[in-house]
């Protein structure tokens, strides 16, 4: 069995400590987290969605899902890497400082990557880039020789293609 990336969408009750329970489970059982996003999705029903990217073979991923579902405040877990295709996006704010030729080149690349310039000073830019993780990584790498100061990435948000909700109950 081969290791693959899996994107898990976890629907939880938005109660105190719920994130600690989920990520504590990953560390306690030795599963790795490559990306993590969490946010409230519905204040009325008081639910949050946690999106985790992890790696493992089929058996490990099944076990991770079963362990997560066992947590009391968890509604459901869906492996978005299975079945119908999913859409995954990540956003990053990338700060680049420089003048002259490097500055021009940074701006040119940002346009090519459809990044927005959200802040500009005479010697720096902040670009907002959205896309698949690889695209974001590639953009950040290209900025390194051009004066990359830092990048702040959001982690992955994901959903399934088509008309159905990911979590149906």
């Amino acid at each position: 069995m081969q290791d693959h990336h899996h994107t898990l969408s976890i629907l939880v009750d938005n109660e105190a400590g719920v994130l600690a329970r989920v990520i504590g489970l990953f560390s306690a059982r030795g599963y790795n987290i490559e990306s993590l996003t969490v946010s409230e999705i519905d204040p009325v029903s008081n639910m949050s969605r946690i999106t985790v990217v992890t790696t493992g073979n089929e058996k490990v991923i099944t076990q991770i899902q079963q362990q997560i579902v066992r947590l009391v405040p968890v509604h459901s877990v869906v492996d978005l890497s299975l079945g119908t295709a999913s859409v995954e996006r990540e956003m990053a704010l990338v700060k680049v400082a420089g003048v002259g030729q490097k500055r021009v080149e940074a701006l040119r690349l940002a346009e090519a990557f459809r990044a927005h310039t959200v802040d500009a000073a005479v010697d720096s830019f902040i670009f907002e880039i959205t896309g698949r993780t690889e695209k974001v990584t590639q953009f950040i790498n290209l900025m390194k020789p051009l004066g990359l100061v830092e990048a702040s990435r959001t982690g992955i948000a994901a959903t399934s293609r088509g008309s159905e909700a990911v979590h149906t109950e």
């Binding site: 099944t62 079963q66 579902v69």
Partner: peptide, 11 residues
Amino acid sequence: IDPSSIGKIIP
């Protein structure tokens, strides 16, 4: 009764 026990160690 615990789904996570199934297949955890032995298929």
